[in-house]
Amino acid sequence: MKRSNRKRALWGWLFVLPGFTGVLVFYLVPFLDVVRRSFLNAMGGGFVGVSNYRSVLENEAFRLAARNTLRFALVCLPLLLLLSLVLAVLLQSLLTLPARQHPGILKAARLVKSAYLVPLAVPAASIVLLWRLVFDARGLLNGWIHSLGGEGADWMHTGAAFGVLVFSYLWKNTGYDVVLWLAGLSAVPQELYEAARVDGANRVMCFFKITLPCIRPMAVTIIIISFLNSFKVFREAYLVAGNYPQDNIYLLQHLFNNWFRELSMDKMAAGAVLLSMCILALVLLLEKSWNGAGRE
């Protein structure tokens, strides 16, 4: 037994090794090097203690970027979650219909789900052109608002750029979250509903009392995943506005890119370490606080 165990263990390692080597080489070891560098000066020379961290934290640009990232998350996530939840619930009501009786509706529902997922497949680069056309000061959106009697905004060059980013993010990720919600919703045992109905609960009560609690763990997951995805909104921001965008959409990636270009390796290192710590903390905190019981 022991021998087969050891053999097994060896095989396990064997399988894991190639990938793990790569991970080590390209991710782990260099990251340790980065940690080391965060304590040195820009050229990798003298030991400067925590002064890099201090300079990063005091850096105006860093503060701006961090503020923006946080603001973005705080604005987007609730919106996204709400929107995708509503859509998921609505969709679920149609998807759970028996196939025999309403084949058309089922097909339509499935089509709708696909449609919601399509934005995931569209590369940011392709769609950015359209965003430019829509959100330009003389673009389609303003034209539409104007025709309704309102006054448009200069979306690209003022604080309203934030709105553009939010919209873009929502467009892209709603489908993703809808799928997740659907998975979570479908995991809710039907018996609970039946029991509740027997007790005389109507749909709304069912929803609030049964559905929501059941999907709480999923909510945590979705929050985390969506938060991590929110970093990717840099793509749209970069493609639309370049390396030095309007203040409101200046994100962390912008900052890091600029640091990279200026060869401020010390700041980058410190920033990277800081960021990793933050994210780690956030994730762990979220999981622990929402779920109570320890999950992996």
């Binding site: 080489v25 390209f26 070891v29 260099p30 990251f31 985390i224 962390l252 290192a269 990277a272 780690l280």
Partner: peptide, 14 residues
């Protein structure tokens, strides 16, 4: 879970 900003520098060095 780490966004690219975190691993960017390390990757570049390697």
């Amino acid at each position: 879970m780490m966004p690219f900003q975190v691993t960017m520098l390390s990757q570049y060095l390697v």
